[in-house]
């Protein structure tokens, strides 16, 4: 575990940069993390992040397949929004823990 400054706040993150406490998440924190990942964050990104946070709050596991059926965008779209890590990067920016699914 480490502490990192994100959007002007000291926030606990894991070694790989995932938030330790999902309650530390704000839109500004997501913006700061997106910048680090060289992602230009848009409204579409936030729609995906809100969806992930909502599912996570309900205790539902996340898969790329489910995310692709969210109605926000399809799987191709997810790869465009989060290049090189459609599930990992979106989870990270949504402030939830690293996905434990193989799909």
């Amino acid at each position: 575990m480490a502490t990192k400054e994100l959007a002007g706040k000291q926030i606990d993150v894991t070694e790989e940069g995932y938030l330790v406490n999902t309650s530390d998440w704000t839109k500004e924190v997501a913006e700061a993390m997106a910048e680090e990942e060289n992602i230009e964050i848009s409204e579409k990104h936030f729609e995906v992040l809100e969806y992930i946070r909502d599912k996570n709050a309900k205790g539902e596991g996340l898969t790329i397949r489910a995310l692709g059926k969210s109605g926000i965008t399809d799987i191709k779209g997810l790869y465009k929004l989060f290049p090189g890590g459609p599930l990992k990067l979106s989870s990270k920016l949504a402030g939830i823990s690293k996905p434990a699914s193989c799909v």
Binding site: G61, R65, A66, G68, I75, V103
Partner: peptide
């Protein structure tokens, strides 16, 4: 049950990712 799709859909997911 683990959200692993049928073969055709799985292949689509793979090609969607490049």
């Amino acid at each position: 049950e683990l959200d692993i799709p049928p073969v055709d859909e799985f292949l689509e997911m793979i090609t969607a990712g490049g």
